[in-house]
Design a protein around this nucleic acid. Structure first.
Length: 479
RNA sequence: UCCUCCUUAGCUCAGUUGGUUAGAGCGGUUGACUGUUAAUCAAUAGGUCCUUGGUUCGAGCCCAAGAGGAGGAGCCA
């Protein structure tokens, strides 16, 4: 008999149908004559109740069925006599595909801490929370490709291994083929000319520079790939390995760049609202339960679904860095010296506390900040007429902080070279990037969207380690 | 990397001013129960108190170093 997925079965099956399901056991309970087995196969958050009558199913088989076991069950769909479900599967035969010994299986039919589940990441897919997160994560992955494809963007695979570290986006992981106990040296220095690529190489920190190359021929492109940062960051918003979406658009100015980022974010949130409501409702409730344990002033004013709808339906606030500084300088926490870093004047980099104030207290909605001082931004951002600011923009989200960072790129060779000199960026390493400005240069813009931060936002999860199946963080590369 | 906090049973946590055999709930096991909903009821097993060193007659508790985890900061996405 062909197996039926539980989602299909619960949505469409009629009483009297004979089916086979294959699934993992969540709980088993019951009495002398009848057992009730909650089954989940990942196709939906909902469980199927399997009813095993001792007259029809061997007791020796039932004894081997514990939480975590995998079974194949054949039977007939019947209307449930119990109140927790409308239909259930009355078993005619059960085969145990894989036992899960109760003395050793770590998942119990009870609430586990997220910290504990991180230690058993190989099994946490089997919990409601992580299956919900991963179904939403999939919807977002799919949504990204769907969004760009339907608008004529081309997906570009930029290299994972790169020779340039010119982006300045943090420490890179080194890639080498050397025997680390016997590294070839020349004049005291490591001799990379003998290494696999004949030069020093690392894992990419961003696909942006390469995406720009593609955009200056293909027009509209995007990357969606893994990126790596060897920063010793220990926060709930950073990973050493994370996925980033980087569109790059020829002829687009900063305005269009902001439009694209806002529209993309809203579309993705809407896609989740349209397609993952069952999982969202579960996470919404989970979050609400968690909020009950918090103090009143720490509680978030909106539930998860409410928050997602709010973001999808409302305009993001757009203000310049200069306007933001004015707001912050005149803000209550600044005047009362409640900020750890007080805003004295123009030019200061904004700290998390400032971004949070703008987003969560002052505007109470997503904020796009643009036109930052050139000294606190990367070399490739286009210089404004004032010679002080660059065409940079950051999208700030409540609870997450910076979810998007982007800019209009400097397309004028002279200005770009001047900035690289000022900031000490080695021009010879990225000669190809400069070539773009020599041959048919054009205005263009792009941004980077941190995928896991987006998943964090849409699932309401507080720690980024819980929205990627196998998080890579300092001192942790298990699984 | 910095600051703060944490580490006791499989899990979540108590553990009094340093004092004899370290506790609970859940989970496990065994038994009871004619349909349960994280079933219920009864009994029961289960501990290198993170590691190392120190103070003390005596350390889960005090001190030092280390390891791991969480929250915040920095860096950023």
């Amino acid at each position: 008999m062909k197996r039926t997925e539980i989602k299909q079965l619960l949505d469409f099956a009629k009483a009297g149908e004979k089916v086979e399901v294959r699934a993992w056991v969540r709980t088993k309970r019951g009495s002398k004559n009848v057992s009730f087995i909650a089954l989940n196969d990942g196709s939906t958050l909902r469980n199927l109740q399997l009813v095993a009558d001792l007259e029809k199913v061997e007791e020796s088989v039932l004894q081997r069925i514990n939480t975590g076991a995998c079974i194949a069950a054949q039977g007939e769909i019947v209307e449930s006599q119990g109140s927790g479900q409308t239909v259930e599967l009355q078993a005619t035969s059960i085969e145990v595909l894989g036992e899960a010994h109760p003395d050793h299986y770590p998942l119990q039919p009870k609430k586990h801490s997220l910290e504990f589940l991180r230690e058993i990441a190989h099994l946490r897919f089997r919990t409601n929370t992580f299956s919900a997160i991963n179904r939403i994560r999939h919807q977002l992955i799919f949504g990204v490709h769907e969004y760009f494809h339907s608008r004529g963007f081309l997906n570009v695979h930029t290299p994972i291994i790169t020779a340039s570290d010119a982006e300045g986006a943090g420490e890179a992981f080194k890639v080498t083929n050397f025997d680390l106990n016997n590294v070839p040296k020349a004049e005291g220095e490591v001799d990379f000319s003998q290494d696999f690529f004949g030069k020093e190489t690392n894992l990419t920190v961003s696909g942006q520079l390469e995406a720009e190359l593609a955009a200056m021929a293909m027009g509209k492109v995007y990357t969606f790939g893994p990126t790596f940062r060897a920063e010793n960051s220990n926060t709930s918003r950073h990973l050493a390995e994370f996925w980033m979406i980087e569109p790059e658009v020829a002829f687009a100015d900063l305005e269009e760049n902001m439009d694209l980022s806002e529209d993309l974010l809203k579309s993705l949130v809407r896609a989740v609202l349209d397609n993952c409501m069952e999982d969202l409702e579960f996470l919404d409730k989970r979050l609400a339960d968690e909020e009950k344990n918090k103090k009143a002033e720490e509680r978030s004013p909106m539930g998860l679904i409410e928050k997602l709808k709010f973001v999808a339906d409302n305009e993001f606030v757009r203000i310049s860095y200069t306007e933001a500084i004015e707001i912050l300088r005149n803000s209550k926490p600044n005047k009362k010296k409640k900020f750890d870093y007080l805003i004295e004047g123009w030019g200061a980099d904004l700290q998390s506390e400032h971004e949070r104030y703008l987003v969560e207290k002052h505007f109470k909605k997503p904020v796009i900040l643009y036109d930052y001082p050139k000294d606190i931004k990367a070399f490739y951002m286009r210089l404004n007429e004032d010679d002080k600011t660059v065409r940079a923009m950051d999208v700030l989200f409540p609870g997450i902080g910076e979810i998007v960072g982007g800019s209009q790129r400097e397309e004028r060779l002279e200005k770009l070279e001047k900035r690289m000199d000022e900031m000490g960026v080695p021009k010879e390493e990225v000669w190809w990037y400069l070539d773009l400005r020599k041959f048919g240069t054009a205005p263009h813009s792009g941004f980077g969207l941190g995928f896991e931060r987006l998943v964090q936002f849409t699932t309401g999860m507080g720690n980024i380690r819980d929205v990627i199946p196998f998080p890579r963080t300092p001192k942790n590369a298990e699984f």
